[in-house]
Design a protein around this nucleic acid. Structure first.
Lengths: 124, 124
DNA sequence: CTGACATTTCGATGATTATAGAATTATGAA
DNA sequence: TTCATAATTCTATAATCATCGAAATGTCAG
């Protein structure tokens, strides 16, 4: 990821409405939700919502797909991951003990790895 | 970390000059560097630089300490880590297979954990 | 095609932000 | 205290951004 790209992504997230949209989409997952539903959930006017969706889309943070009359928006997990990598990758040149290992540790709280070591379903 | 806090931090980073400053400080490490040196390195006028440092400081992303006539600025690694955690923590509710494990994986490239398992210096 | 609904674009307004010259504050040296 | 240097605050200007009503576009049903 290049500097410009990172700034566009960060700027897209650095806004109340857009961060809410993004987090909502992250929570919803890969299936996504239609625009109207986002607007209802977050109480945002259609025009305003469209403006912000375009911004997030342009930043590569979300994707869209048409389904009937509805347009479903989805969080772009890989781009988000790339952004976080960019923000950490040049860290601790020569001073490995400080660094962002802290971050790495904390990030483990995201998506706790299946707390069911006993019930192993071998099916899909 | 709260929503407002995250937005302030993201907005602080979503700017050419400030992202450059932050990355420079990240590279420099915990020791930090004085303002003048930052301005020289990045070719930014003193007033402009001060403006951006205040912004980053207010966002909790950097710290400062006085040393003689110089003020040293340092990246705030823990706050950065908290921000990244915030951006990922509500991810994949009910859909663990997509998620941001991708991010976690990539983040391992940051600060490779001491590739010298032989030469162990037990001194400071 | 016509009508109904989902979403986007247009346009105008108010608010916030980046920039840097000039003045000010703060620190150390003589 | 006086001078020189480091950094910040003040002030004004130009640029960008968020918001939303109204109009336009796109999609499906009949």
């Amino acid at each position: 990821m290049k500097m410009k790209e990172a700034i566009v992504a960060l700027a897209a997230l650095a806004q109340d409405t857009r961060l809410s949209i993004f987090r909502l989409l992250v929570q919803v997952g890969p299936e996504g939700i239609p625009v109207g539903q986002i607007g209802e959930e977050l109480q945002v006017a259609p025009a305003t919502l469209s403006f912000h969706l375009k911004e997030l889309y342009h930043a590569g943070l979300i994707s869209s797909r048409q389904e009937g009359r509805f347009i479903y928006y989805t969080a772009n997990f890989e781009h988000m991951a790339a952004l976080m990598t960019f923000l950490t990758q040049n860290c601790c040149q020569g001073v490995p003990h400080e660094c962002l290992t802290v971050a790495e540790t904390q990030l483990r709280d995201c998506c706790p790895p299946k707390r069911k070591p006993k019930s192993t379903r071998s099916q899909s």
